[in-house]
Amino acid sequence: MKARTRWDVVCSVSDLVPDSGVAVWTEDGPVAVFYVPDRLPALFAISHTDPFSGSNVLARGITGDLKGEPVVASPLYKQHFSLRSGQCLEDESVKVTVYPVLLDGDQIRLQVPVAQAEVAA
């Protein structure tokens, strides 16, 4: 169970790239933030770490949708991850962490589980 959470400012709108991702550093580790202007909501945040390689690369993947589900494709081995649930479409047993994200003025805020972050750190 999460001890407490916090809405951290991680970047501003001008840091985002439409239809693409950027990586931010959080207390919970590296997180990929995606901005898809044609969708509502338009912001998604999942772990930046590709579970298949262990490398921090997911923000550099190509975004899109498969059968309506918003996804990012890992730039290394091309597996797709749902931007909504973190579920890997090619392997049911693999899932990446999803972070609540919102736009506050021109600031992007992420909800980060601090307790977990402390354990991870």
């Binding site: 790239v17 439409p18 239809d19 693409s20 390689s53 490398s55 921090n56 690369v57 550099r60 993947g61 190509i62 975004t63 730039p75 290394l76």
Partner: peptide, 22 residues
């Protein structure tokens, strides 16, 4: 060009070849 960035594979986007450790 900003319109094209999201279209490229990471290698094209960053104009280098990604290796297994990122």
């Amino acid at each position: 060009a900003s319109d094209h960035v999201p279209l490229q594979d990471t290698n094209d986007t960053f104009m280098a070849n990604m290796q297994k450790n990122g």
